[in-house]
Amino acid sequence: MDSLELSTSLSVDKAEKKNQSIRVRLGRLRDSVCESGIFVLTASSAIIIVFIFIFILIKSWNIFAVNGINFVLKSGFDQQIIEAYHAPADKPVWHFGALGLLLGSGLTTVGALLLAIPLGIGTAIVITELSPRWMKGLLQSFIRLLASIPSVIYGLVALLVVVPFIQDNFITSELQLQYIKQFQLTGNSLLAGIAVLSIMITPVIVALSVDAINAVPHRYKEASLALGLSHWRTIVKVIVPSAKSGITAGIILGTGRAIGEALALSMVSGGIGNIPNPADGGVFFLTPILTLASAIINKSESMSVPSINAALFACGVLLLVTCTTLSLFTKIVERSIRRREGLE
């Protein structure tokens, strides 16, 4: 406003004028200091992003240098951690294979998605299209709450409800005896992991799907109804397809959450990097497993050993690469869908 004041003070005497112009100049100085401040903050945000990536890569470098591609092709992570922990300082163990963890992350995520996608889209359809007006806000509040429940609470509830349920209903002592050589069947399992993850990522998918469906122009719905499609067929054939880029974004975001979830999974999924064997039938789902993210939590106590430290950072790199790919993938999917629909 300083320059405004300047214009009103044309008639005042010279001294006053000089005073004014100093104030204006001070104002400009203050502006440019603040603007540089903003720029510095922005630059530091940019730097931190790059720094995180480089730092984690460097920290894990040795692992990839020693193991190469075998880091993702070999299994036995738990055993290797124990060996590395007990290895004498002059003969450190650098050989690690995270295949089991990779599969653990993959299986829990895929399983959770298979449950969460229909749950999420169904719920989003109810919120946007089927529920009466008074219910919509209420349902949305519940979804938001579900999205903001901390993962440790999910872990706690799953550990004390879902795990005992699995133990009581699916695990018999004969079964336990049969598999005792390979692993202990306790209820902490792939299945428990999938159950807790699916509830955790459903609200993410719901939230983005609701936004996407609400953004579908009303005229598409009218066009479809006027063509003799029922409300449900309109939803299935016109509304949901028109919202697919947003729904896809929600699913990808949910995938990222599932892959990155560490704590809840470390509480309920067993904590041992077994590779579930499809030949075991139902026991496949009862196998205790470990994921990349929960391995970092579980093994962090032995991080003082340099090679273990690097191995955990290598797990971090795998997570980083996956999640970065997912983020970029969202952008690409959104763009290609928009292009196909002729919006760009």
């Binding site: 598409y220 063509l227 499609l229 397809p241 002729g342």
Partner: peptide, 28 residues
């Protein structure tokens, strides 16, 4: 609505191909 069709003030084709726009009501 199958007997009484409607064309709106704003053109409102679906964000699909021309073929799909035509085929959807037929199939449905």
């Amino acid at each position: 609505r199958r007997k009484v069709g409607m064309v709106f003030q704003q053109p409102n084709p679906f964000p699909k191909t021309i073929f799909e726009n035509m085929a959807l009501p037929v199939k449905e």
